[in-house]
Write a protein that binds this DNA or RNA. Structure first.
Lengths: 267, 267
DNA sequence: ACCTGAACACCGTTCAAGT
DNA sequence: ACCTGAACACCGTTCAAGT
């Protein structure tokens, strides 16, 4: 009945949880072809960046490494595993804030949000991969821990911290997804952001369904698409930070812990 | 040089912008096989719901319709076009608020957010499709218009409205993506949300990288995964609403319009 | 106008075989 | 221990042909 069991073996959950090859992950390049997990992952990231997730294939990757498609399977169980490895590897690019209790938590939130957004814009395939897997690799966990420490310093009651984290970083995720997708389409069309915008804009002019949206756009005349986007991001982020500040001491808690559980302040 | 031009014809942007077949979209089922766009789209949605985006294929869909794979191509240019049609069709399920100026905008925001989240959870493929295409179908536009009208009623200065919209709905998008993905994995594993959680939880116990996350989880003992998720969603949404309220009159505008443009209050 | 069949250029992955 | 080649069961899409 369970759809994942048609091949006999149980459905995979994540490289980080059930990787048959994990212990043999020696990075010594003593192999005939100089292959190892790091080299494969790095090549995957390079290819994903250059050609996109759609065109990425095990065969294409193997060719890039000068090797047969099946050689890669010696180091990696499945394509899914490889994508998870690539995902976690780019999380390593994020510059995490040092734990300085004198710094303003708001600035640190802004910096983390910028870093996260930058990751998604810099690697347009990240959004899609993030949405497909569990994202529990070691570097993603470091990022999550850092984010939690920063938001904890805002002084929220404990049960609200995960909600605030969710508001912040799910927003950045959604924003980065749209932005990365837009950029990819521009690249495919061989156009700059503004040229592509005006092409879409032009095709839609005069159609009733788009009247109000067009109107909204014309009010913001004079700016580039990138400027509008940056401003929306900044405003949204300030909105979130201000929202978090209001939740520090407000006693209401309609949405807080279960109705008959008064242990909100527990460490 | 542009990567999209390898096939000779220009890269597609959207069914809604360059659909060669648009005018012939007659819905009279006078065809030999009773096929038309609506029937095809409906079947696609059914199949996507039942088996997921990964397993969805033109051949599989054709089989479901009792027809050859290539028959579908008479009504639809590409698989991408079909996915955009399916996406817009489920946007039609969203129950839009009537324009009642006496209702509290906060309640209407909560309702729209719930509807949007419900759409993504009810159709786990929606998140992925949303992240890949432009989402400018007629029903998606109606939703966007409704959202804009609701947020406008919060009384923000005009240049902040799109930022606030972004904060709200990109958050719901991100949240819904994670949630839908989690649910899909549970279904694949043939487990309930809590059982699946405890499986992952168990595999990770004792590993240093996961120590702080596990600690965080244990503090919330006693609740089901769904309850925790619902609470995070509610708290995040209240955080966003509170944030929007603080942006109504605050004069700072560090992130507002361009520095030398004082025309903020323009209609 | 609508539908089919065969074909092209791909996929991820398995498996037996090589070194 | 590591890598290859052939094969399986698929893809999206084109194109010439049928009715």
């Amino acid at each position: 009945m369970a759809s994942g069991s048609r091949t006999g073996r149980p459905p995979r959950t994540s490289v980080w949880l059930d990787d048959r090859l994990a212990p043999k992950r020696r990075s010594n390049a003593e192999q005939p072809s100089g292959l190892d997990r790091e080299r494969i992952t790095a090549a995957a990231v390079r290819l994903l960046d250059a050609e996109g997730l759609e065109k990425f294939s095990m065969r294409r990757l193997a060719a890039e490494l000068g090797v047969t498609a099946m050689s890669v399977y010696w180091y990696v169980d499945t394509k899914d595993d490889l994508l998870e490895l690539a995902l976690d590897s780019v999380f390593g690019e994020i510059d995490l804030p040092v734990d300085s209790p004198d710094a303003d938590w708001r600035d640190q939130v802004r910096r983390l949000a910028d870093e996260y957004r930058g990751l998604m814009v810099g690697h347009p395939w990240v959004s899609s991969v993030l949405g497909r897997y569990l994202n529990i690799g070691p570097r993603a966990m470091e990022f999550a821990d850092a984010a939690r420490r920063v938001v904890e310093r805002a002084g929220l009651p404990a049960p609200r911290i995960t909600g605030a984290l969710s508001a912040l970083f799910q927003f950045v995720y959604g924003f980065g997804t749209i932005e990365a997708n837009w950029n990819s389409r521009c690249r495919e069309a061989g156009l700059g952001s503004d040229e592509f915008f005006h092409r879409v804009f032009g095709k839609v002019r005069g159609r009733a369904e788009y009247a109000t949206s067009l109107e909204l756009m014309e009010q913001r005349g004079g700016d580039t698409v990138d400027e509008m986007r940056q401003r929306d991001f900044d405003i949204a982020l300030e909105c979130l930070i201000a929202g978090i500040e209001t939740m520090r001491e407000r006693g209401t808690g309609e949405a807080d812990a279960a109705p008959d559980d008064p242990s909100d302040g527990a460490s």
